[in-house]
Amino acid sequence: MTDRPALMLLHGVTMSAAAWDDVVPLLAERFDLIVPTAAGHRGGPTLAAGATIAAVTDTAERELDERGLDAVHIAGNSMGGWMAVELARRGRARSVCAFSPAGLWEKNEKPGASRATLIRTKKLADATRHLAPPLMKFGSGRRIAMRDIAVHGDRMTRQQAVRSFQDLVGCEAAYELLDTRENMEPLLELPCPVTVAWAAHDRIFPPAEFVPVARQRLPGARFVALPGVGHVPMIDDPELCARTIVETIEDGTG
């Protein structure tokens, strides 16, 4: 590690560290980046027991322990945003930038419409694992395949789209995590600066439904709207994501 501040980037459920590929070059000169693939996901560590958000977060925390790091800046999307909040709750975050974080439902609640959409997407991907990748060479195919998580899925390269599809199919923990009865408990006194950045065109967690809940669970957070992007904003506008992360960190250190 260098004397640059450490920044951990956490991806969403069924994805991998590759979700941040277009953001990493925009941050690499300013931060020591830690970009893991979550446990139970394609290319990530295996989970010894059941797949839970707590267990996946434990693995991310162990990564910090293994690097000898106490608290770092953390940015995360969807599941990764939820994990970032949980790591802050454990005292492991210097700042948090949560992009459309998950977990904003009631404890022990069965999957609602949002998680049901993701479960259907996973089942469809499993059923078309050999048919879909060839269609990714067309911009229209990428846009249709990514329509639930991005406004401009066609901006992905063919290689990125195929990798994302393979990550979805290869995520062993997907069904357990999408069926979790865990939730994000309120964090009324923030241990560090927290920005909640919501995608204006989020079709998975629509802002009109989920932002009011997020404000109740994280009343001390700074809330910003991200124009022109979908649930995984790193696809639509990596520069906007990088700026939002930097602003969060500067807000906490300025």
Rank of each mutant, 00 (worst) to 15 (best):
S95M: 01
S95Y: 04
S95P: 00
S95T: 07
S95R: 03
V96F: 11
V96S: 03
V96P: 00
C97S: 05
A98I: 10
A98W: 13
A98R: 10
F99P: 00
S100D: 12
S100N: 07
S100Y: 11
P101W: 14
P101K: 07
P101H: 08
P101F: 11
P101S: 06
A102F: 04
A102Q: 01
A102E: 01
G103V: 06
G103A: 02
L104D: 03
L104F: 15
L104R: 04
W105V: 14
E106V: 12
E106R: 13
E106K: 13
E106H: 14
K107W: 12
K107V: 13
K107A: 15
N108T: 11
N108H: 14
E109P: 00
E109V: 07
K110H: 08
K110R: 13
P111C: 06
G112Y: 12
G112C: 03
G112W: 15
G112M: 11
G112F: 11
G112V: 06
A113H: 08
A113P: 00
A113C: 00
S114L: 03
S114M: 03
S114K: 04
R115Y: 13
R115W: 09
R115E: 04
A116D: 08
A116T: 15
A116N: 10
T117M: 11
T117L: 10
L118P: 01
L118H: 04
L118F: 05
R120I: 11
R120C: 02
R120D: 13
T121K: 04
T121N: 07
T121M: 07
T121I: 12
T121L: 06
K122D: 01
K123A: 09
K123D: 08
K123E: 09
K123I: 11
K123H: 13
L124V: 15
L124Q: 14
A125C: 10
A125H: 07
A125T: 15
A127S: 08
A127N: 02
A127D: 06
T128K: 09
R129Q: 06
R129S: 06
L131S: 11
A132T: 15
P133A: 10
P133R: 09
P133Y: 12
P134F: 04
P134A: 06
P134C: 03
P134S: 06
L135A: 10
M136N: 02
M136C: 10
M136W: 08
K137N: 03
K137R: 15
F138M: 13
F138S: 04
F138N: 06
F138I: 05
G139P: 06
G139W: 04
S140L: 08
S140N: 04
S140K: 11
G141R: 09
G141N: 08
G141M: 13
G141A: 11
G141S: 13
G141K: 14
R142M: 10
R142Q: 09
R142I: 12
R143T: 03
R143L: 02
A145M: 15
A145L: 14
A145C: 07
R147Q: 08
D148M: 13
D148P: 00
D148I: 15
I149S: 01
I149E: 02
I149A: 01
A150M: 04
A150V: 03
V151Y: 02
V151H: 05
V151A: 02
G153D: 09
G153V: 09
D154H: 12
D154L: 00
D154Q: 10
D154W: 06
D154C: 00
R155W: 07
R155L: 09
T157Y: 03
T157L: 01
